[in-house]
C-alpha cells in the first residue's frame, strides 16, 4: 500500500496498577489503513481493541505514540471520525430525527432548521427508517436503534467510521440485515471503516483486512489477514468460495490457540512489520522494506472447496 490514510504509530496504553506498578494493555502497536478500506479487529476480550478504537476516535489518549489521519496527527475527537457505539448511545429524550439532526447541526452550525432537517432526513431514508422519524428510541427495536446510530454517524459525512461491536447486541437475523446495509453504504460512499468484532463470519463478510490481536495484557497485533474473497461477495454464496474455509479456519485457529501462545512462540515478532497473511496466495512479496512482510499459510491452496 502506498496510501496510508490512517496510520497508528507505536501507540501504547498503560494504567497505573496497584502498588505503583503499571499495567500495560498493549504497547508499540503499529497499523495502517488505506482510504476506503474496511478493516476489522478480532481478538479476545481484554486485548485492548476498544481502547485502540477509542484512541482512534480521540475519546482516549495513548500513553505513547501517535495516530495520523489523512496526514495529520490527531488530538482529541473530530467530526471527521464518526463513532457507532455498541450500545447505540442514542439520546432517549430526542426523536429519531432529533438524534440525527443533533449530529448534523453540530457539524454545520450555521445551517437553518429546514436544511438540517432535510439533510438528516436523507440519512434516515438511507438506513431505511422512513416513517419512524418522530419515534423516540424507546419505541424502536434494537436493530432500528442501531440504524439510527448508523444514520447519525453517516450524516456528518465523516472521513472514517469507527464501530465498536455495533451488532453484538442484536439477534442474528437483524445483525445480518444490518451487516448488508453497512456493507452497501460503505461500498457506495467509499467509506473507510474500522470495526471491532467478536464474530468471525462478520469479519469475513465485511472486511478487506482483518487485524488479529493476541490476548492481553501486553497484547500485540499478530497478523494482518487480507481477505481473499472478491469485493462483490454476497452473503448467500460466501461460504462457497474456495478460500472461505481456509480463511475462516485460519482466524479460528488463531483465536482458539495461537492468540495465547503467539508472544511466546514468536520472539522475533516485529510490531512495526506485522506479517501480512495472504490466504492461498503464496510468494507474493513487495520490495519496500517498511511494508509488512509477506507470509504464506501452508496447507491452503486455491483448490480447496467447501
Amino acid at each position: 500500500m502506498t496510501d496510508k490514510f490512517i496510520s497508528i504509530e507505536g501507540i501504547a496504553k498503560r494504567y497505573p496498577g496497584a502498588s505503583g506498578a503499571t499495567t500495560t494493555i498493549f504497547e508499540n502497536l503499529w497499523l495502517s489503513m488505506a482510504r476506503g478500506e474496511f478493516c476489522c479487529v478480532i481478538g479476545h476480550s481484554g486485548c485492548g481493541k476498544t481502547t485502540v478504537l477509542n484512541i482512534l476516535a480521540g475519546l482516549d489518549a495513548p500513553s505513547e505514540g501517535t495516530v495520523i489521519v489523512d496526514g495529520q496527527s490527531i488530538s482529541g475527537t473530530s467530526l471527521d471520525r464518526a463513532v457507532i457505539f455498541q450500545s447505540h448511545a442514542l439520546l432517549p429524550w430526542r426523536t429519531v430525527l432529533g438524534n440525527v439532526a443533533y449530529a448534523v447541526s453540530s457539524k454545520w452550525r450555521r445551517w437553518d432548521r429546514a436544511k438540517v432537517k432535510a439533510h438528516a432526513q436523507t440519512f434516515i431514508d438511507l438506513v431505511g427508517l422512513t416513517g419512524s422519524e418522530h419515534k423516540r428510541p424507546s419505541e424502536l427495536s434494537g436493530g432500528m436503534k442501531q440504524r439510527v446510530g448508523i444514520a447519525r454517524a453517516l450524516s456528518i459525512t465523516p472521513k472514517m467510521m469507527l464501530m465498536d461491536e455495533p451488532f453484538s447486541a442484536l439477534d442474528a437475523l437483524t445483525r445480518g440485515t444490518l451487516q448488508d446495509e453497512v456493507r452497501r453504504i460503505c461500498l457506495e460512499t467509499g467509506q473507510t471503516a474500522f470495526m471491532i468484532t467478536h464474530d468471525v463470519d462478520e469479519a469475513i463478510y465485511l472486511a478487506d483486512k482483518i487485524f488479529l490481536m493476541t490476548n492481553g495484557p501486553g497484547a500485540v497485533l499478530a497478523e494482518v489477514v487480507e481477505n481473499p474473497l472478491p469485493r462483490d461477495r454476497g452473503r448467500t454464496d460466501l461460504h462457497r468460495h474456495p478460500l472461505y474455509y481456509a480463511l475462516r479456519n485460519h482466524i479460528i485457529d488463531f483465536l482458539v490457540t495461537r492468540s495465547k501462545t503467539f508472544t511466546a512462540e514468536t520472539p522475533d515478532h516485529d510490531p512495526r512489520n506485522v506479517p501480512m497473511v495472504h490466504i492461498g496466495k503464496p510468494g507474493l512479496t513487495i520490495a519496500a522494506s517498511d511494508e509488512p512482510r509477506q507470509t504464506r499459510i501452508p496447507g491452503t491452496s486455491p483448490g480447496l472447496t467447501a
Binding site: 476516535a57 480521540g58 475519546l59 475527537t77 473530530s78 467530526l79 471520525r81 464518526a82 463513532v83 457505539f85 450500545s87 448511545a89 439520546l91 429524550w93 443533533y102 449530529a103 453540530s106 457539524k107 456528518i156
Partner: peptide, 27 residues
C-alpha cells in the same frame, strides 16, 4: 450522566456550554 451520551457529544465536537444544555441538562 451516562458516559456514552457524553462521548456522543464529544465525538460531535459539541462545546461545553452546548453540551451542558443539550446533553447533561436533559439527562
Amino acid at each position: 450522566v451516562r458516559k456514552e451520551w457524553i462521548n456522543v457529544a464529544r465525538t460531535l465536537e459539541v462545546g461545553t456550554i452546548r453540551r451542558a444544555f443539550t446533553v447533561i441538562l436533559p439527562a
